[in-house]
Design a protein around this nucleic acid. Structure first.
Lengths: 153, 153
DNA sequence: TATTGTTATACTCTATAACTATA
DNA sequence: TATAGTTATAGAGTATAACAATA
């Protein structure tokens, strides 16, 4: 979808980049998300379980920080994971306000079964880019994600 | 968030690119989405109204094709736009199964009020990249979005 | 007082399948 | 028979604000 907007070159460049970015996000997201849905996991749920698998137990605050979502939200996602017995809450011994969220054995097995196919899918999607293009792409995404935090606008 | 995954260089490269991509999508999306929410528009609703504004009336099939969502889904989004009187359904004269979705005067005003700020936000977010980086980024996103459609894997 | 997490509330999105009306 | 769109259904995510328990 071209922009159909008559702005300055600078505006058109940014708008075009944003649109391409969003569309790539939708299409890749749905292609990659499909491979998760066959395991009865939503992307949010997968993100949490995968984080626990690779980083170990974390409390809700830490997870919400990593995954950039609100606390009340994460309660729901973790609730749904507990229903599926893929994660569990364990009260913290040091701070009785906190829970540590742990991945369960079933969750580990699920990730181990699912991750290779998931990874294959990702490698496949990115194989349209050369190695150096992928690296450049990562670099640009990172820069965009960090934003102009030190520009103090 | 680094990948914490010990795979081949190829796998790590793709996984890293995917994670950076997703995170940039979340952070940029929320920063840019905020500017829409102040106008009581969700991103989906904005996408539809903006499309109608810039491309003119379209029927539901055409919109769902452009925005990559399902039909039943779009019914809901357009319903919500009609409630806000930002869009309206007009029965097609040539094919009585179809509706043309039109933007309303109120919708046009809304876009005209909202779009400059929205655009400024996007230009600002992308200003962390140089002009040529933005162009390279668009190119890479486009390539990713199209996927390996002619690889017939 | 501040923090961790839950609850309550309410809405939006999303998909699927069955359905209506029309072509 | 096929197509355009709605309806019904159901679930998942999202945010906000008020709240309880603990620090």
């Amino acid at each position: 979808m071209p922009t159909h907007y008559n702005g300055t070159a600078r505006e058109k460049r940014a708008l075009n980049a944003w649109i391409k970015f969003k569309r790539a996000g939708i299409t890749l997201g749905s292609r990659i998300g499909d491979s998760l849905r066959t395991f009865n996991l939503t992307e949010s749920q997968f993100a949490v379980v995968e984080l626990l698998y690779h980083l170990g137990p974390r409390n809700l605050s830490e997870i919400s920080e990593k995954l950039l979502c609100t606390g009340g939200n994460l309660t729901t996602v973790v609730d749904n994971l507990e229903k599926q017995k893929l994660a569990k809450r364990i009260p913290s011994k040091t701070d009785r306000r906190q829970y540590e969220i742990h991945i369960t054995q079933k969750g580990k097995k699920q990730i181990e079964k699912l991750f290779p196919a998931h990874l294959r899918r990702i490698v496949d999607e990115f194989s349209v880019l050369s190695a150096s293009e992928q690296e450049e792409f990562s670099r640009l995404c990172k820069k965009l994600g960090l934003g102009n935090t030190n520009k103090n606008k």
